[in-house]
Simulated scan of single mutants.
Amino acid sequence: MNICLYGSGSTKIDNIFTDEAYKLGCEMAKKGHTLIFGGGDTGMMGACAHGVQDNGGKSIGIAPEWINDFEPLCEKCSEFIYVNSMDERKRKFVEHSDAFIISPGGIGTLDEFFEIITLKKLKQANQPIIVFNIDNFYDKMLEMIDEMAQKGFLYKQEEIFKIANTIDEIFEYLEVRM
């Protein structure tokens, strides 16, 4: 299975997050899954990619070359797909991925998350989407989404994405979907 990870590339992230991302990458490799990601070598993306690579797994980075001006790109990817824009990057994520994991991140991660759940709601994508809620990172956002659903502004999240607090929960859900 090709699993796309959305997550921060920041170097300022607490180890509680990057340690879990590394462990996630280790498990992905051990289970024979391929990591699809934004190609960053730092933060959540880099930690997950290093976990995959350290365990003999495969990773495919997707990014415009100019992103290297903002964060270093992972040089040890099994494959790297260069694109011209962030929109093209997101399209390639959808084309190459069988599932999505949204790990802690910033504005870019939220942009990717809201785009993929919108595409799923509009039946333009059907892949499983899992919010990896490490250390309750996404609790406030999930509360807001719940309130939006309660007030009739959108479908309940359970119909569009799942929430996982542990790596085991991620793979339990994905294995049912395989």
Rank of each mutant, 00 (worst) to 15 (best):
residue 2 N to E: 12
residue 3 I to A: 11
residue 4 C to P: 07
residue 6 Y to N: 06
residue 7 G to E: 03
residue 8 S to E: 03
residue 12 K to M: 00
residue 16 I to M: 07
residue 17 F to D: 01
residue 18 T to K: 00
residue 18 T to Q: 01
residue 19 D to M: 05
residue 21 A to F: 01
residue 24 L to W: 05
residue 24 L to G: 01
residue 26 C to E: 15
residue 29 A to Y: 05
residue 30 K to Y: 02
residue 32 G to M: 02
residue 34 T to E: 13
residue 35 L to E: 09
residue 35 L to W: 09
residue 36 I to V: 12
residue 37 F to P: 04
residue 37 F to V: 01
residue 41 D to A: 13
residue 43 G to Y: 09
residue 45 M to K: 04
residue 45 M to S: 01
residue 45 M to L: 02
residue 46 G to E: 00
residue 46 G to L: 04
residue 47 A to Q: 09
residue 47 A to E: 04
residue 47 A to M: 02
residue 48 C to K: 03
residue 48 C to T: 06
residue 48 C to D: 09
residue 48 C to E: 04
residue 49 A to R: 05
residue 50 H to P: 01
residue 51 G to Y: 06
residue 55 N to D: 13
residue 56 G to D: 11
residue 56 G to K: 12
residue 57 G to N: 14
residue 58 K to P: 11
residue 59 S to V: 09
residue 59 S to Q: 15
residue 62 I to C: 12
residue 63 A to I: 05
residue 64 P to D: 10
residue 67 I to T: 00
residue 68 N to W: 00
residue 69 D to E: 15
residue 72 P to T: 00
residue 74 C to T: 03
residue 83 V to T: 08
residue 83 V to A: 01
residue 83 V to N: 00
residue 87 D to Q: 14
residue 90 K to A: 03
residue 92 K to V: 13
residue 93 F to T: 09
residue 96 H to S: 11
residue 99 A to I: 00
residue 100 F to T: 11
residue 102 I to H: 04
residue 102 I to M: 07
residue 102 I to K: 06
residue 106 G to E: 11
residue 106 G to D: 10
residue 107 I to R: 07
residue 107 I to H: 04
residue 108 G to M: 07
residue 109 T to R: 08
residue 110 L to N: 03
residue 111 D to F: 08
residue 112 E to S: 13
residue 115 E to W: 08
residue 116 I to T: 05
residue 117 I to E: 09
residue 121 K to L: 10
residue 121 K to N: 12
residue 123 K to N: 15
residue 124 Q to S: 06
residue 126 N to I: 11
residue 126 N to K: 15
residue 129 I to S: 11
residue 130 I to C: 02
residue 131 V to I: 13
residue 131 V to E: 06
residue 132 F to C: 10
residue 132 F to H: 10
residue 133 N to D: 09
residue 134 I to W: 05
residue 134 I to Q: 02
residue 136 N to D: 14
residue 137 F to N: 03
residue 138 Y to G: 05
residue 142 L to C: 07
residue 146 D to T: 02
residue 146 D to A: 01
residue 147 E to R: 14
residue 147 E to I: 03
residue 149 A to Y: 00
residue 155 Y to S: 15
residue 155 Y to W: 14
residue 157 Q to R: 15
residue 159 E to Q: 14
residue 162 K to A: 14
residue 162 K to E: 10
residue 163 I to A: 10
residue 163 I to Y: 06
residue 163 I to H: 05
residue 166 T to K: 12
residue 168 D to I: 01
residue 169 E to L: 08
residue 169 E to Y: 04
residue 169 E to H: 09
residue 171 F to C: 09
residue 172 E to F: 05
residue 175 E to H: 13
residue 177 R to W: 01
residue 177 R to Q: 11
